[in-house]
Design a protein around this nucleic acid. Sequence first.
DNA 1: TTGAAAGCGCTACCAG
DNA 2: CTGGTAGCGCTTTCAA
Lengths: 347, 347
Amino acid sequence: MGERPTLQTVADRLGVSRATVSNAYNRPDQLSPALRERVLAAARELGYAGPDPAARGLRLRRTGTVGVLLGESLTYAFTDPAAALFLEGIARTGEKLGTSMLLIPSPVGDDATSAVRNAVVDGFCIYCVSNSRHQLSAVIERRLPTVLIEGDPIPGAGRVDIDQRSGAQAAAEHLRQLGHERVGILAERLQTDAFRGWVSDERLAGATEPVSRGRVLGYREAFPDAPVFEARGNRFEAGYQAAAEMLDAHPELTAILAETDMLAFGTQRLAAERGLRIPEDLSLVGFDDIPPAARNEPPLTTVRQPLAEKGQVAYDLLQELFAGEAPRNVMLPVELVVRESTAPPRA
Amino acid sequence: MGERPTLQTVADRLGVSRATVSNAYNRPDQLSPALRERVLAAARELGYAGPDPAARGLRLRRTGTVGVLLGESLTYAFTDPAAALFLEGIARTGEKLGTSMLLIPSPVGDDATSAVRNAVVDGFCIYCVSNSRHQLSAVIERRLPTVLIEGDPIPGAGRVDIDQRSGAQAAAEHLRQLGHERVGILAERLQTDAFRGWVSDERLAGATEPVSRGRVLGYREAFPDAPVFEARGNRFEAGYQAAAEMLDAHPELTAILAETDMLAFGTQRLAAERGLRIPEDLSLVGFDDIPPAARNEPPLTTVRQPLAEKGQVAYDLLQELFAGEAPRNVMLPVELVVRESTAPPRA
DNA sequence: TTGAAAGCGCTACCAG
DNA sequence: CTGGTAGCGCTTTCAA
């Protein structure tokens, strides 16, 4: 114990200079293998774990870590399958390069930005953080390479996106072609507030959340008069409750367009409790195509987006920025996947 | 652009000393509010984002980040619900304190340890990493506060654990009391190799993975002769395939004890395909009580462990170590949850 | 091959 | 309340 050993400690022990010890770790070709071995042995003996990462980071201006900001609480990362898959994509790519991934919380406290300002990272990935302007500007101030995922553009930052709107439109069009005319739309947060309830045209027009805005507008393109209910949070229960209000107010509906698969699952549960069969009594459409969608009973009609690939591409764009290249925008394809939760409306 | 501004840049601009600028950020009570405001304004104007985290970390020997090691690939974090819930517990606790969480990969490459050695963190949480001895010793060498989750003890490290063995034993005993005599056990990795297949008594005796070892031995306590099949990976498909081999070889079985809920789910799928009803034709027991277990059809009998709490407690123990307290061990309770996937064997 | 010296950007101490 | 000063532990020329 006692003093924490440093490069110097090891150097002194061997009677060599700090530089030599440093080289033993970072540039093995700069010294004889025998000496290197001696250095490493001495280090082991002294309990020296190698160059201190903080000091190294200071000197090198590089840490091998990318920071990830999640819009919601950090717990979201592990709760929402779509977010999890995206992160898995990032993780997988980082893993290949041996880089770590720093999950940065959005504390509700007074200084939401301190975690951003203190993050020892080489760059940032921002996933749906439009709701936390402060955090966003803290990231921008850091002037580090940054990639936005499904967010409104920021100058200098790369972007990876999917075509929310045309995906949603295709799904709605699918319902229309089946003969549906009375459909309800279940939305997730449209603005940065904590609203929950029926969505007015004004609210929809003023929507600030890019994902929700794109999807709901896409749905509305096929069904301009469809009622829209805004759930709070992308969770099963939120979908369940939103569906309840929707069907209470509009028992005439023959189909539900949910903004996400999670909301669709909640809707399905409610439908089951009310004795509505899917798709015979009610058609149901989701968005995302998270893995459970295909395993669902009945398998869910939904819009597939390449979730893991999104993470991978985000990481690649970040690499490009590290390399000094100009920021790029990438638009990933979406695809309507028709399964068995949609059918023509009852006669 | 150009030069990245530093504390000094801001100080020069205002004609004050570095210390004053530093104080403006870190000790607001050390200077007049008016001056502080001027400093912050100048910083904003110069595009200075606040003290550099790397330099700060070097000076303070503290970073506000905890490193988390996952045994498997990092993707495991987002794939396995039990791991995800544990991480959520950590995240939630960290979020309160405004600290970030660094996910450290276990690259398969030559230097599995570089990510550990380069991690700019105040401490580590180790989740099931017994399979990567190199990484483990790299962590130990760092001599930072460390907490082990369900791992074999390390001197100086805190530990949070659950009583795998008695939980498993209770589950097995439950089957015995229902009248089962011929049961099969589905295990997950018992040793650090990539084995998959029937488990000999020798292999079981030499099991190095604490979680699997505890659970399987617990199951075996009630059924000393039960055949054990080792799946590769805690995944749905692995459970499916393991169950297939188990039931092919032992069609006489009336119940399956799975080491995890995930393996149980895979087993259920296989059973369904073979026309075996649960629990009428086959009783099924899991372990973990991940959320889908309760929603399963039929609801799964399993052993509940407090997954999120495990993360929370781990974080708390780490805090204690930061505060200089002695490392503690905490054993969290498990509880058999009898649902509808178990019943007496057919006559 | 090796070693001496110059910082990377910051905080904390101490004297004003 | 302010401003010098002394490092935190490291990497990297450059000269030997």
